[in-house]
Amino acid sequence: MLDQARYFMHRPGDEFTAAVWLDGWEHQSLWGWELGYYFLQLWRNDARTDKPFLWLTPADRPLLTSSGSVALAIARTTGADPLDISRALQILPPPALRSPIPTIEGELASLGKSPNDDYCAGQIAAYEWALGRRDIRPGSGSPWRGGAPSLDEVTAEWNMNTGYLNDPLLQNRPHASGVDEALGTIVFDATDG
Rank of each mutant, 00 (worst) to 15 (best):
S66P: 06
S66I: 03
S66D: 10
S67E: 14
V70N: 01
I74F: 05
A75S: 14
T77R: 14
T78Y: 13
G79R: 10
P82Q: 11
P82C: 14
R87C: 15
A88W: 10
L92P: 10
P93H: 07
P93F: 12
P94G: 14
A96G: 00
E105W: 09
G106Q: 07
L111Q: 05
L111M: 13
S114Q: 13
P115Y: 11
D117N: 15
Q123E: 05
Q123L: 09
A125G: 02
E128H: 03
E128I: 02
A130D: 07
A130W: 12
L131K: 06
L131N: 05
G132F: 05
R133N: 15
D135N: 14
D135H: 14
I136L: 14
S140V: 08
G141Y: 00
S142A: 08
R145L: 15
R145K: 15
G147L: 15
A148C: 09
P149D: 11
L151N: 10
E153G: 09
V154P: 04
V154L: 02
A156D: 08
E157H: 04
E157N: 06
N159Y: 04
M160E: 00
M160G: 03
T162H: 11
T162W: 06
L165I: 01
L165E: 04
N166K: 00
N166D: 14
D167N: 12
D167F: 12
P168K: 06
L170G: 03
L170A: 05
